Simulated scan of single mutants.
Amino acid sequence: MVKAAVIVLAGTDSHADQGRLANGLETAKEFAETDGDDVELIFDGAGTQWIPELEDEDSDYHELYRTVRDDTSVCDYCAGAFGVDDIVNDAGLVTLDDHDGHPSIRSLVADGYEVITF
């Protein structure tokens, strides 16, 4: 069994950021589709800005996002800092605030997760 934490840090400002989002979603999907694997998809930092677009059914990435949505969580602090906390809450996504309002990367490592950032 493989345990992977895919963390999307890329914001929404550039074409390169869009590519990192797509690659992060595809990576999470590959783990999610593999029997026995455990994946956590975390939107952190500027990456939290993607949530409004991903929740929009007209988004180019909505369907891909839907394949991993059940494995998705969002940094609580960063959702507020980037002004998407209402959308995150309305979507019913899990927020993480384990370490000073942010996800605990150390806990993921201690639990045996390979951490992959995009």
Rank of each mutant, 00 (worst) to 15 (best):
D60I: 09
Y77R: 13
V109I: 14
F43R: 04
T12Y: 00
N23F: 04
G36T: 08
C75I: 05
A79T: 06
D86E: 14
Y77S: 11
L108S: 04
K29R: 14
D60M: 11
I116Q: 14
V84Q: 01
D98V: 10
E53P: 00
D38I: 14
D44E: 12
Y65C: 06
H15M: 13
F43Y: 04
G83T: 08
V74F: 08
G11A: 09
D37Y: 15
I116L: 14
A10G: 01
S59T: 09
G45E: 09
G47D: 03
P103L: 03
G47M: 06
R66S: 15
S14C: 06
D70T: 11
Y61R: 08
V6D: 04
K3V: 07
D44F: 08
V8M: 02
D35P: 15
E26W: 10
D98L: 12
N23E: 11
D100P: 00
L54F: 08
V115Y: 03
F82R: 11
D38Q: 15
Y77P: 08
H62S: 01
H99F: 13
W50S: 08
G47S: 03
A10P: 07
A81G: 00
V74I: 14
T72R: 08
H62R: 05
T72Q: 07
D97I: 02
G80C: 08
T12K: 11
A91S: 14
D111C: 07
Q49A: 12
S104N: 04
